[in-house]
Nucleic acid binder design. Structure first.
Lengths: 112, 112
DNA sequence: CTCTCATTTGAATAATTGTTCATATATTTA
DNA sequence: TAAATATATGAACAATTATTCAAATGAGAG
């Protein structure tokens, strides 16, 4: 790991220009949220309409518990917001940013 | 999992409009690639310059082996391309799409 | 041809993570 | 108040995955 650098000046220059580890970590975290089939399904469904947990369970063919766990993760990541009405909790996307990220991922997936 | 639907007609309508499981899976796969600190570091470094394995190891403070493993994943996902010159293999980003995705992730991370 | 160097590869390990199951909470209804 | 329903939660389990280490390629230099 500490051998001589092949392109010392270039490598050092790039290293200086790197974003902070913290920021790069946070960026990776954002993508990690999108990197799961169930969550991507939830996001796309919520792009179409505000929905409650059992709707999402039906739409994605998963259990209510699994959906609830994933919604918690999406909420913590500030990608979805919740609205409670009686026993039912309605979820929706937090902002258009989420849709934008989804669409670019979709474009790229389409290119494969 | 098979109880009555709360919003039957809405849920069925959304389910009909869902993208195919295969496509949604592929979209999640794309994001999964970006969802790792080491790979995000590699991507950002390659955004700044074409670099070889040991450059990347130095820049990201990882072992050459770890970088090589991750580069294989990035190459399989068609996010980077390789050019060999003697003993050295130079890596670079495959297209601007990668940068676009990175930048949107960065914007979102910034908002947290 | 042998030595060195850059990279790759495979197996092993450790850590993370998504789902399930059982149970808990909260709210409505009888 | 008790029963029913929608959602949430915690622990356990299985599966995935990133890194490390040792060894193998592959290419240039002596």
């Amino acid at each position: 790991m500490n051998r001589d650098l092949i392109h010392e000046s270039l490598a050092k220059k790039v290293k200086r220009k790197m974003l902070s580890d913290d920021l790069l970590f946070d960026i990776a975290e954002v993508f990690k949220i999108f990197g799961d089939s169930t969550r991507i399904k939830i996001i796309y469904a919520l792009k179409l309409s505000e929905l409650c947990v059992s709707d999402l369970a039906f739409i994605t063919n998963s259990s209510e518990s699994a959906i609830s766990h994933q919604l918690r993760i999406l909420k913590q990541a500030k990608l979805v917001k919740a609205r409670k009405d009686g026993k039912v909790v309605y979820y929706s996307l937090k902002d258009d940013h989420v849709i934008k990220l989804f669409e670019i991922g979709r474009e790229h997936a389409h290119e494969l």
